[in-house]
Design a protein around this nucleic acid. Structure first.
Lengths: 188, 188
DNA sequence: TGGCAGGTAGACTGATCGGTCTACACGTTT
DNA sequence: AAACGTGTAGACCGATCAGTCTACCTGCCA
């Protein structure tokens, strides 16, 4: 499959899946909106599930790059590096393709049955947690294990609050809580 | 439709929808597992969507009763009332029917299109937020608006962490953070 | 005991699903 | 220009979807 068609197909698929879920969307719908023929899809991918898996990988890699962009400043302290994750997620959530966490959404539809999709989704969530965990290990005054779990919870919670209550300030609010926690933890 | 069949149908439907999502589940599957005939379903409900709506209402009412059970103690201070929401959710999450938030899950599949299902799901999330908000108004030393949003985020985040990282301690962890916040906020 | 009514089983319908097959269009090579 | 090969369009396939229809069963009242 020529690269531009493949790109268009994956971009369209990811956009639709993100907004409207996976199982309820037909491949015909994706094909129609992408302007791509069915054989073109099935030459490049084994199945609809394989297409979904590839959109998960692409989104995961894109999110990872986005996070690293925000947290890899040279002259920033470890606490600020952590706080900038919240800025990164706020920016991420303002993109039109955002509709809650793509991987969590995949898990609600595929998590009950073992399979490559649920494994991929879980792997990317663990990867995000490990990313937070590594950042926390740079701060000597906190328990990295506990704090990274708390940070993970706050970011996931901000995501859900953003979506289900239309709370546009959720990430800023979560960031403030994180600031408080990073300060207070160091005081005992 | 006789009451016991209706109950069995709704219980089975809710259990399957909770574990495996909505759109990917056929009414035939629900019928088979409930041991109920198709006509019995369609005498009692207009459509699959109407059945889903009723499961949302039932679960919402059940969760509300569960929360009130935990938070309506007579001789409990307002802070402890708030903290007991985390105990309630931990208990709730240990039930076999738990698989993340039923309403958030419904929103990931139906949230993009206006409809009765997404409206119901959003309404129950707002109701939960309002419940937290009311509890917060009983504590004079905090900003109820801000705190209830933060509590909402933490509970939703604990739910996602529980599901996607298999973090069985997420609600206890979130409760500890809430304790800290309720104390610290009162000190300035 | 006869007849009526409510409820149920499961065959059936048209639409739509994921996936395949075929016929052809077009750029490249000779 | 002729022959070839890659890639595409869309008809097509069996399976399955949500929802309906019909034939029957069963309990109830006369």
């Amino acid at each position: 499959m020529p690269a531009p068609k493949r790109e268009r197909l994956l971009d369209t698929a990811e956009a639709i899946f993100a907004k409207e879920g996976f199982k309820g969307i037909s491949v015909d719908r994706v094909l129609r909106e992408a302007g791509v023929a069915k054989m073109t899809l099935y030459k490049g991918f084994d199945s609809k599930d394989a297409l979904i898996q590839e959109t998960l990988r692409r989104r995961g890699d894109r999110l990872e790059a986005h996070l690293k962009l925000y947290t890899s400043g040279a002259n920033v302290g470890p606490e600020d590096r952590i706080l900038s994750v919240f800025d990164a997620m706020q920016d991420w959530s303002e993109r039109p393709e955002f509709n809650g966490c793509y991987f969590v959404n995949a898990l609600t539809e595929y998590g009950a049955v073992e399979g490559e999709i649920s494994e991929l989704a879980r792997a990317y969530k663990r990867q995000f947690f490990n990313f937070l965990n590594t950042l926390c290990k740079g701060v000597s005054t906190i328990d990295p294990e506990d704090t990274s779990h708390v940070l993970f919870m706050m970011i996931e919670g901000a995501t859900v609050s953003y979506m289900s209550l239309d709370d546009r300030d959720s990430f800023a609010r979560a960031r403030k809580v994180a600031e408080k926690l990073l300060k207070h933890d160091s005081s005992h």
